[in-house]
Design a protein around this nucleic acid. Sequence first.
DNA 1: GCATATAAGTCAACGTGACTGACGTAAAGG
DNA 2: CCTTTACGTCAGTCACGTTGACTTATATGC
Lengths: 160, 160
Amino acid sequence: MTDVKAGPNPLYLREDQLHEAMELLFFAYRDFTTECDAILASHGFGRAHHRVVYFVGRNPDISVTSLLEILRITKQSLSRVLGRLVSEGFVTTRQDPADGRRRLLALTAKGRSLESRLSATQRARIAKAYRSAGGVAVEGYREVLMGIIDEADRRRFHRP
Amino acid sequence: MTDVKAGPNPLYLREDQLHEAMELLFFAYRDFTTECDAILASHGFGRAHHRVVYFVGRNPDISVTSLLEILRITKQSLSRVLGRLVSEGFVTTRQDPADGRRRLLALTAKGRSLESRLSATQRARIAKAYRSAGGVAVEGYREVLMGIIDEADRRRFHRP
DNA sequence: GCATATAAGTCAACGTGACTGACGTAAAGG
DNA sequence: CCTTTACGTCAGTCACGTTGACTTATATGC
């Protein structure tokens, strides 16, 4: 868009540049997640618990099925993780008043506290990267990641 | 750099923007890896095998210790994965002529073939995203991901 | 030359988090 | 009323990470 093709193959489409992009994603994701693991481990939790706490926190009163669609795991997998979070008082379930089959999930105060401890470290890492890269780079980061994400999932990121 | 601070808190540092950045990374990484899983599964392999095949392919004659440092897993974990790749003829080990304690890892033709099938799908995904985002966005993607990556790992990406 | 350090491999036990398949129950809806 | 949907659960499996202990081979410093 901003940089109309300078020929059939711009430099950034060379194979080594594509490999660099893959490795950037690999290392960034790895370093992005490792900091939280210590906090999670202190509760005997893993990354699966983090993902549940995060998405329930960001989507209060989400149904189990919706959460499964976000996480793309089986209900049996979610069950073990969610079961512990509920029984240990991080997440509450209540019946949907509009549709009694649905269970609506939400964080308790304890759950919000855990979620905010976890998110804070990741937000700080992103903020540091955003700040040092600047607004133009942030927009580029968004555009490229949107392009990597499956078309079906892109809807999630429509801006107001 | 490109966009010097417009005040104490530019818009892209707002909490919801940081959450968006986190979710972009989560969904991009997930969608980036899922395509390869089918190919891997057809060999009875998982993502750990992919990572080994990829990094050995990109770093011929890498030592076991160096590979462990990249992957940040224990040698016992690597052992199971690497052992299968060697015994099934995807990876070779040979003694380092300069230091007999080291084993140098490399892909066989079979290993290169698997690696290239796997990488091709991921390269295509990145290329599509890069192409549609353009050169300026690509540079932004690189800058932000570099900022997310631990300082110690950033050396890996120094350009010529 | 010997002691120590390094590189690699191995045995054992364990935990998390995915999966499949089958079954049960409650509520909604045509 | 019957089917579909939402949820939960029992049972078994597998990938992939962990810790800890121990061995073998080679390199290196004193």
